[in-house]
């Protein structure tokens, strides 16, 4: 495993830790999109089916379990925890996220590496992950007040896929890996969706101002 891949996984983990910290310590999920969180549950549930069939490494298995358990628990907190759920911005989080699922699934049926259940679901998870952040970005834009934890959560989440791009370049060059257009292009789209957010995040960080996205 190369340094970009490890750094990518660690920022992904860090983003989830930041979100859980917000939920646990502030007992709040203000500014967090439940729609995006639900999409991540679907992403991990369809991608990590191989946890039962293929063993890669201890690291791989543990990380998969961590991502599955944390994504389920975040959704549980936002839906059912009696304090946390009252802080959910239900009226602002109106992105029709179901409309993302069907096109991603159809695309996975059409464009995949191999037409097997496991491979189609894996591909579906890549397509869905690429666009899963959209409800969250829309919610951020509507939020007048973005707290630091929420801003950092989205930043780390974007950094994760950005670092994966370097991981793929490294693997292609150094490990002579094959062309892998499906993850590369979905990863590129996923990272590009953060471009606008990154711009304002870094600008506010430089000026030491509170993050606010233009409406």
């Amino acid at each position: 495993m190369n340094v970009f891949r490890l750094a990518g996984d660690m920022t992904h983990l860090l983003s989830i830790m930041v979100l859980l910290l917000k939920i646990h310590s502030m007992k709040s999920c203000a500014g967090i999109s439940l729609k995006t969180q639900e999409l991540y549950v679907l992403v991990f549930a369809t991608r990590y089916l191989d946890i039962f069939t293929t063993y890669f490494s201890f690291y791989n298995t543990v990380m998969k379990i961590v991502f599955l358990v944390t994504s389920f628990s975040i959704v549980w907190y936002m839906r059912h925890h009696k304090v946390v759920r009252q802080t959910y911005d239900r009226d602002q989080d109106t992105f029709r996220h179901h409309l993302l699922v069907i096109p991603c699934f159809l695309l996975a049926l059409l464009i995949n590496h191999r037409f097997t259940v496991r491979e189609v679901l894996w591909t579906f998870s890549l397509y869905l992950e690429a666009v899963a952040i959209l409800p969250q970005l829309v919610l951020l834009q509507r939020s007048r007040n973005i707290d630091n934890l929420t801003g950092n959560y989205v930043f780390f989440l974007g950094a994760y896929r950005g670092l994966y791009l370097f991981n793929w370049i490294y693997r292609y060059m150094a490990e002579k890996s094959q062309l892998r257009w499906i993850p590369w292009i979905s990863g590129l789209v996923q990272t590009a969706l953060y471009a606008d957010f990154f711009y304002y995040y870094i600008k506010s960080w430089k000026k030491r101002e509170k993050l606010q996205l233009p409406a």
């Binding site: 191989d50 890669f56 998969k64 894996w122 892998r180």
Partner: peptide, 10 residues
């Protein structure tokens, strides 16, 4: 094996 190579990522 490309499938192994892809699926070892998270």
């Amino acid at each position: 094996n490309q499938e192994i190579q892809t699926h070892d990522e998270l």
